[in-house]
């Protein structure tokens, strides 16, 4: 069966598209050695997926070389040493978004679908050509947004553009960098607020987690860490990967250090406030 293509997009930059692509990619590959996963960095001119994955020193060819016929797709793929079923097709760093066309992407993805079960496309920020190149062959889209106004607004715009495509692209929402304590004190929009505004299916919620920075420093996506327990970002990414393969995983509950009595008491307090 030809592989499925999932697009990661957001409109706004800096919300965690590349981090999410890297972590969900390694999580998918680590969960099942029989699933072959390919990640494509479409941020031509500003590549970063390689560095998130710790594969920056192993790049020989890139996506522009492939579409221009300078090499075969197989030659440009960088295999991950930790996960033999994971590969990266890097972006070119010296070219720009116009170096690839949507038609070339459709041809390239058709070839990759024969080699991989899942193809994850990391789209660049913005809604210009790089975005349309990334959309050209996508079956599904994961919209990454933080619970901030500008990120949600841009996400809405991107969802509108995806819905306006001639093909039906299944859209999922990932809320990134949620700060449960701030939501609890009503200083940040919560999961329900963002879902209500964007009105698309929620795939998962990633809490703000300092370990993401440390893992990126090392080039080892957090989802790979052995110590992923509880309700950190690494586990949240693993859960998303499970959901993508059809496993039902309940949404993480944050703020679990509160005991049940405190929670019930707060509920009671809230009830009294309303009445």
């Amino acid at each position: 069966m030809p592989g499925k293509t999932i697009l990661f997009t957001s409109g706004k930059g800096g919300v965690g598209k590349t981090t999410s692509t890297a972590n969900i990619g390694v999580a998918l590959a680590s969960q099942d050695p029989n699933i072959n996963v390919c990640m494509i960095d479409m941020d031509i001119g500003l590549r970063n997926l390689d560095i998130q994955l710790g594969l920056e020193n192993r790049i020989v060819y890139n996506i522009v070389d492939v579409v221009e016929g300078a090499c075969k797709a197989r030659q440009a793929l960088v295999k991950d040493k930790r996960l033999p079923n994971l590969a990266l097709l890097p972006a070119a760093q010296t070219r720009d978004k116009s170096a690839v066309s949507p038609e070339q992407m459709i041809t390239l993805i058709a070839e990759l679908r024969e080699m991989f079960d899942l193809i994850l496309i990391d789209s660049p920020a913005g809604i210009e050509q790089g975005f349309y190149n990334s959309v050209a062959a996508a079956d599904e889209a994961i919209i990454v947004s933080t619970p901030e106004m500008s990120a949600v607004r841009d996400a809405d715009r991107v969802i509108g553009l995806l819905e306006a495509q001639n093909r039906k692209i299944n859209c999922w929402l990932v809320i990134n960098r949620l700060r449960p304590a701030m939501v609890q004190s009503n200083d940040m929009m919560g999961v329900d607020d963002v879902v209500e505004i964007l009105n698309i299916k929620l795939l998962g919620v990633i809490p703000e987690d300092e370990r993401i920075i440390v893992s990126t420093n090392k080039g080892e996506p957090l989802a790979l860490a052995k110590s992923n327990k509880g309700n950190g970002a690494g586990q949240a990414y693993q859960n998303i990967a499970l959901r993508l393969t059809g496993v039902e995983v309940p949404l993480m509950v944050f703020g679990e250090n509160e005991n049940i009595f405190v929670k019930q008491f707060n509920k009671l307090k809230a009830l009294i406030k309303f009445s």
Partner: peptide
């Protein structure tokens, strides 16, 4: 028990402004 009077929180404000902005968008 009832706490201080309920003010409009910045969370409510963000949601309202965003809903209006997105509608206009």
């Amino acid at each position: 028990l009832t706490g201080p009077p309920r003010d409009v929180t910045s969370r409510d404000e963000a949601k309202k402004r965003l809903q209006l902005t997105i509608f206009h968008d």
